[in-house]
Design a binder for these strands. Structure first.
Length: 420
DNA sequence: TCTGGGGTCCTAGGACCC
DNA sequence: TCTGGGGTCCTAGGACCC
């Protein structure tokens, strides 16, 4: 049996922990650049505010209902997430951290008849340890655990925990679940499924394998099989290294100067390099892209991208920054107003392999040593304490961040605020 | 005026090999 | 006029997830 623990309105719940006066107020958390709504408290959901709505379309609603709107604070959310997962860890040695606010737990070592009680204990523990409310669904497969989780959250009488013990029990609840609410069924497929008469999760469970394989694909067939109580998706307790690493941002203002964009991509390359080293990898390719504001219908549009092959696989920040600037020189065109840029690292290899190039000699020890030193300094004294000069100091490209909460759990000065 | 960021997997088709 | 069988690798595009 698998438990799926999912934090309720996670970012909004994090914001409330250290600002308890927000508890009854509707809360919205915005995306980078303070653009779209990416998290809503229950009160905000009840007001009918959709996920992803651009905040500038909600000005009146925000004033009318005194909605608290804030920028996102991922430093805080990541730290709270760690604490939630740590609380859950005491219930099972087999835990897969699926996303910042979700975990799968194997609970096979708990007796079947106690599962509801175990779920309630988990919920209580997380609440006590972190003040974050959760919904918990248990089922024989991940997909059924997801369904159980949905029921736990939607039907208040269950107190946030719901168990689907078997495929037979699933058969009773699946007719009430719309097919688009099944994990793995998105917009496109639900449309297509409905066109062949598959409307509910039950219909999908009962659907003909051949039809699913022929008209759809093997991924959807697996989903249907999981609904029958046969596991197709295994627990992945060890997070595999990412195969691509992306760092991109929309700019706070539109930019026209090449050297400003160079500073931005130097910063992206730095961040990507940090992620790369953290997972113990090297990259062979660095792609760069830029684009104008796609929402502005009156502006001439341009979007460009290019891939720079690195002479050898590397995680050395200066080498990646240099590649990013090379890329920008290739694709930058004068006369446009740029709104977004980013870099993508690919050709990811483990850093235990050091294949040399014929004409490009590298002192791995020296490079590795300096990166190590830089990472240590930045861990101790804060991000960007030590950085390459190409990033600059003017921050002209930085996204908007008008109202971010404090880093109550990770930054010394902010922790003092909490204590006070 | 204002519209996010970061990932994965599968499939089909083309190019190539023997 | 007739024209095999069995593979791999790469890429672009489409679907999905949070």
């Amino acid at each position: 049996m698998i438990a799926l623990v999912d934090c309720n309105n996670f970012y909004a719940s994090c914001e409330r922990i250290f600002q308890p006066w927000l508890r009854k107020r509707p809360v919205l958390v915005l995306s980078s650049n303070d653009g779209c709504v990416i998290a809503r408290s229950q009160e905000a959901k009840d007001l009918g505010i959709p996920m992803g709505a651009p905040i500038h379309t909600l000005t009146e609603t925000v004033i009318k209902y005194e909605i608290y709107v804030c920028s996102s604070n991922f430093t805080l959310y990541a730290d709270i997430s760690k604490r939630v997962m740590s609380a859950l860890g005491s219930f099972s040695p087999h835990i897969e951290v699926y996303s910042i606010d979700e975990s799968f737990l194997n609970v096979d070592h708990h007796p079947q008849e106690n599962l509801l009680a175990i779920g309630r204990q988990m919920r209580q523990s997380v609440l006590e340890w972190t003040d974050v409310p959760t919904g918990i669904g248990l089922g024989p497969t991940k997909t059924l655990a997801k369904i159980a989780n949905r029921i736990a959250k939607k039907q208040k009488q269950h107190g946030g925990v719901f168990v689907i013990n078997s495929a037979e029990e699933a058969r009773e609840v699946l007719p009430s679940i719309a097919v688009e609410d099944v994990w793995g069924v998105g917009r496109q497929w639900s449309k297509k499924l409905k066109s062949v008469g598959i409307v509910s999760a039950y219909d999908l469970q009962q659907a003909d394998d051949k039809l699913l394989r022929q008209k759809f694909n093997v991924v959807l067939l697996r989903t249907a099989t999981e609904l029958r109580g046969i596991p197709c998706l295994t627990m992945e307790e060890i997070t595999p290294a990412n195969k691509t690493i992306i760092a991109s941002r929309s700019f706070g203002t539109q930019m026209t100067k090449e050297y400003d964009i160079e500073e931005a991509v130097a910063s992206f390359a730095t961040r990507a390099a940090e992620k790369l080293r953290k997972q113990g990898s090297l990259a062979l390719y660095l792609s760069v892209f830029v684009r104008t504001n796609i929402f502005n219908k009156f502006q001439e549009q341009y979007s460009g991208g290019t891939t720079v092959a690195l002479p050898i696989a590397t995680a050395y920040t200066p080498a990646l920054v240099e590649a990013a600037r090379t890329g920008i020189h290739r694709i930058f065109r004068d006369g446009y107003s740029y709104k977004k840029a980013g870099i993508v690292l690919s050709g990811i290899l483990p850093d235990t392999i050091h294949q040399q190039a014929l004409f490009h000699k590298v002192n791995y020890q020296k490079e590795g040593g300096s990166m190590n030193a830089m990472d240590n300094v930045n861990a101790k004294y804060g991000k960007g304490t030590l950085r390459v000069g190409a990033i600059g100091t003017r921050k002209v490209w930085h996204p908007k961040l008008e109202k971010s909460s404090k880093n109550y759990t990770t930054r010394y000065e902010d922790i003092l605020v909490v204590k006070a």
